[in-house]
Amino acid sequence: MTMIFGVPTAALFGQLLLGLINGSFYAMLSLGLAVIFGLLNIINFTHGAQYMMGAFASWMLLNYLGIGYWPALILAPLIVGATGIILERLLISRLYNLDHLYGLLLTFGVGLIIQGLFRNQYGVSGLPYGIPSQLTGGQNLGFMFMPNYRGWVVVASLIVCLATWFIIEKTRLGAYLRAATENPTLVQAFGINVPLMITLTYGAGVALAAFAGVLAAPIYSVNPNMGADLIIVVFAVVVIGGMGSILGSIITGFALGLVEGLTKVFYPEASSTVIFVIMVLVLLVKPAGLFGRTA
């Protein structure tokens, strides 16, 4: 068997593929953060809790209303996105004129409250959520056993990421959004409802987190802390990619998934820190992140 640094190539391919799968979660979550930061200038620390709410929403839809995975994939992001819109209207919208720090504190606090409420109601052990019957089983790729569901996660995440990128960078709506970021007063003067656009953008960013949550429910433990564990890594991804850069966060998300996957083969103990090491190195060389523009 061919070996690379003492690891069989077949095993290496397997690990790279797994890295890509994890990367798709990083990409979806960091994309939502980047969209929100780019247009609202809010560092959305509630994102982890909203990802968790997505997973819980799909569990609730199944257990209280008998609605399965596929409808939940659409419904859960809509529901959680709606709660995001309420949050934005009631609280976040009052902070746009203040320093970033206030938005950070508010969203961080709200995130803790949401986690606490879910913990009170459902405990921390987690809830069971099965893989949809169409996607159980897997393919033998020769070098590894690839569960069908994981393949679906990569495809779904790529579609969602590219669609978001396309809307923001290539459509008229996206042009309005980008213009509103640069100069909201001027855009409003052209008769475009900027506050409404901002609210909907926040809702969409939150919906992206919830979508990732639904995708995660069948493979990760559905529990109130699931977002808190992930969100710190995702913030590192956003910082490496460059705050607010849409394409940057997608590419960095997938790339860091791969790097983490490789670390798990060669030195597993470091796999939880490797992303932060990269973050430090990137910040030393390019303080605005790999794809960020210096203000």
Partner: peptide
């Protein structure tokens, strides 16, 4: 044996090593 960072959410990589 493989030492996994605590806490972890993704064990697939470690499980494949164990499988191999």
């Amino acid at each position: 044996t493989v030492r996994t960072p605590f806490p972890s959410s993704d064990f697939s990589s470690f499980l494949l090593q164990a499988q191999a």
